[in-house]
Amino acid sequence: MEQPRGRWRALHAIGRYAALGSASLFALAPIYWAVATSLKPESKILTYPPQWWPDPFTLEHYLNVLMQSPLPRNYLNSILLALGTILLVLCLGAHAGYAAARYNFRGKNPLLFLLLATVMIPGIVTLIPVYLMAVQLGLHDTHLVLILVFSAWQVPTVVWLLRAFFENIPRELDEAALIDGCSRLGAFYRVVLPLAQPGLAAAAILVFVWVWNEFIIALNLTASNKTRPLTVGLFFFVGESSIEWGKMAAAAAAALIPVILAFALLQRRFIQGLTAGATKG
């Protein structure tokens, strides 16, 4: 900002790196410890003082998780749930967001407000009746009910997010398409939607991370390993194998990989989605 003299500037830089360095250490330590534990042989995990670096290094825990645990099935469930929810949310959210961005119609503002108002509902209030409905409709412990409930919680954010993206696409493009003989839906699908790809990507990654991490809804709406996603699977796995530390750590590390990868590859979209979702009025 200002132009402090040389020594001050050096001190300033040192202070900045020291503060950011310690914060980064704080951010990484828990993740590092799980990964380090997962790579140690069982005999080196419970040492006092702790072994700071895995030596020797082993992948046996990962093989054990893959071969002798129910977690691969949970992994698959999480992927299916994430894909299903992303498809449904993008489909519903894109249409609603487009309507909100392009048209003025009676009831628009109350409907948008209704979506915004979901921020004030604690999940647990609705979870009890949703559980009862799911049991009574015979949908308890199905992928379908999870996808529907997950989607309902993600749709409002995505509508607000996509609406903002559509508003930045010039209206003249829709109008040109209409004049060229497109139907109103055709103009949306063929002209506007392809241009909104960055917005769709931002929405998809937000939904993916949310579904991958969701725990409490899935815990109560599932009852068997056929439907349990990874978070719930891990919860029971840890409860049942409370002394196999290496295996638990390997399972946790494996659960982290997809979100960390998605985040690393699409960081900009993720941040864009997060900030737009919270502050776009």
Partner: peptide, 16 residues
């Protein structure tokens, strides 16, 4: 690095 914890689930945060 500093944004990373936000993509970790509550469940994993608790375990870690």
């Amino acid at each position: 690095v500093l944004i990373l914890p936000w993509v970790v689930s509550q469940l994993l945060t608790a375990l870690l």
